[in-house]
Amino acid sequence: MGLKRYFAEKICMYLASMFTAITLNFVIIRLIPGNPAEVLKELLRQQAISVGVVEFVEEYIREFGLDKDIATQFIYYLVQLLHGNLGVSMTRFPVTVQELIARHLPWSIGLLGVSCIISFALGTLLGAFLGWSRNSRIAQGLYYLALYLSLTPYYLLALILVYLFVFLIPLFPFSGGYSISVSGGLNYILDILWHSTLPALSVVLSSAGGWALSMRAFMVNVLGEDFLRLAKAKGLKPARIFRLYALRNAILPQTTGLALSIGNIVAGSLLVEVIFAYPGMGWLLFQAISCLDYTMIQGIFLITVTAVLTSIFIIELLYPLIDPRIRYS
């Protein structure tokens, strides 16, 4: 299989996956039990408004095209998507979905993106070490630590961190993405870093264990391969064998895992955002699902699916570079 064919196949797969995802995104949302108009009607009642409720439901349904058949709604949805229009939030009217996503996405990418890369790097290295020296005492101790971290519920770990480093030793702030009293410049950047440290640490600690365990498993598999025995028999230095023979082969499946975790970055982490009162996409998605804000849910899912598919697509395009076997096959 030539490289051209490989790339063509991947591009076709990417486009097909995108269309399927977009379609499923549209359909699945509408399968959620409930009717957004009824939710808003109840909210209206809470405001002690009893007059005009029927008209309200009718107008709401009309405004968002909920009275049209599903095919018409789908075509309308696709046309809007092609125009880059994700629509107006049903519950945050008149704020557009794009505006809300644009406000929240950078926080999620900033926090979860960086912490995901750090945790991936740390976890992978730790896993490589655990696999490489699996009989040493240090490796065994670290293995149990990684196991413990990967099994600790995230909210518990996060609350312990808050208790230790916010309450007992007040090193970090209680909440938020930045101090409102700090204005631009270097201090602002430092302030953002200060606020993100603990949430990032919690994410790194809770996910690095998982990365380490999976990497250890891949590493152990690779260590049993013949080419590694040959390398040792050739008298290569252990560091060279580790870097070029073991690590490079074991890291391939890890990178696929990294591509898949991009989805989590874009969709945000609700628990991180709730416990650390940190801005991001998780809370936005949670609010949207709670109030059946179709347009918002669609918007967020679309961004997430696009991010995951695109990152997988990029990783697959990069595979020939990482893995020469694909290049030469």
Partner: peptide
């Protein structure tokens, strides 16, 4: 097997992260 290299790399990254945080 030598485990010096990965362990050293691990320690350097960890110190870097904690230093950056505090």
């Amino acid at each position: 097997r030598s485990h010096t290299f990965p362990l050293a790399l691990l320690i350097v990254i960890s110190i870097g992260i904690s230093g950056f945080s505090v």
